[in-house]
Design a binder for these strands. Structure first.
Length: 279
DNA sequence: AATTGTTTAAGAACCC
DNA sequence: GGGTTCTTAAACAATT
């Protein structure tokens, strides 16, 4: 079975800063012996988002490091080794990426698939690394029907489903994990939840490894109170329609909208068909 | 030797 | 402005 994961060099997925453009900018060449390069933060994309998209665009939702590099190859210019290093750092230091043994019977620490661990995606990470998907997914911002029945929202984990029901918003979903909320300031979101959420399970570090991380995610963990993907829950509770049959702005949702958080990454429609990369 | 993964650290951009 | 987050570089270990 083959799958086509399309990436467009000139659209929102790829970082644009008007200078270098695309990964050619983010992944700029480093001249040997030169002082540490000043990097330009790109507004709409990061390594994490890109890697996640590459992985989720694969048929099995997991790739080896080599396969990841292969997927991103068209966007890699210049110092390939440095870029590989950066991607490795990203993979091994972020909890949103998870290793899967190449062969479970013979686990090998150096031979793994990498997959996206949605449990490791916090709202903050979502905003930072995936928010550009909002522009690609009209369904994430369209008015939605009120989600007023917990029992019918069987695809969504209970805690959020009930929270959504509490909000009873007609027209637009405004729950704590609504896209709007996700795009609001963390402070606002935390204030919204502070009165209703009691015990939260600490997630540990969203990133692994470095010393400077050790106290970083203390408060961020507050946003993850259930071992279920925050992103997935958000989409579930908002009953995001599949893009292929999604409603237009101002239209009501079709009756049989099912929760499929994989749409976040898997739909080929998330990319404009400007340039395709197949694998 | 090459590849893969982990860890540390510094600097810069981002966010509150 | 200060804390946080991301990018980059580099060293190192383990494995192929």
């Amino acid at each position: 079975m083959s799958s086509v994961f399309s990436l467009s060099l000139d659209q929102e997925l790829i970082m644009t800063n008007g200078v270098n453009g695309g990964l050619g900018g983010l992944l700029a060449e480093r001249s040997s012996g030169a002082p540490r390069r000043r990097f330009k933060r790109y507004t709409t994309g990061t390594y994490i988002g890109l890697i996640a998209c590459a992985i989720q665009g694969s048929p099995d939702k997991m790739l080896t490091f080599k396969q990841i590099m292969k997927k991103l190859e068209p966007f890699v210019f210049g110092d390939k080794r440095g870029i590989e290093n950066n991607i490795r750092v990203c993979l091994s230091s972020n909890r949103c990426f998870e290793k899967v043994p190449f062969d479970p019977n013979y686990p090998n620490p150096k031979k793994n698939f990498w997959k996206v661990n949605e449990n490791g995606i916090t709202p903050k990470m979502f905003r930072r690394h995936f928010k550009y998907l909002i522009n690609i997914f009209p369904g994430l911002s369209i008015p939605t029907q009120a989600v007023d029945e917990c029992k019918d929202n069987s695809h969504a984990p209970e805690p959020l489903a009930c929270k959504v029901a509490e909000s009873k918003s007609v027209g637009k979903f405004t729950g704590p994990f609504s896209i709007d909320s996700l795009l609001k300031s963390d402070r606002e979101v935390k204030r919204m939840r502070s009165t209703s959420l009691e015990e939260r399970v600490h997630y540990g570090d969203a990133q692994r490894g470095t010393a400077k991380r050790k106290n970083v995610y203390e408060y961020e963990a507050v946003e993850c109170y259930n071992p279920v993907s925050v992103v997935g829950r958000e989409l579930a509770s908002a009953k995001i329609p599949l893009l292929s049959s999604g409603p237009q702005h101002g239209h009501s949702l079709p009756p049989h909208i099912t929760y499929n958080h994989h749409v976040l990454f898997s739909s080929p429609l998330m990319y404009r068909p400007t340039r395709y990369v197949s694998w």
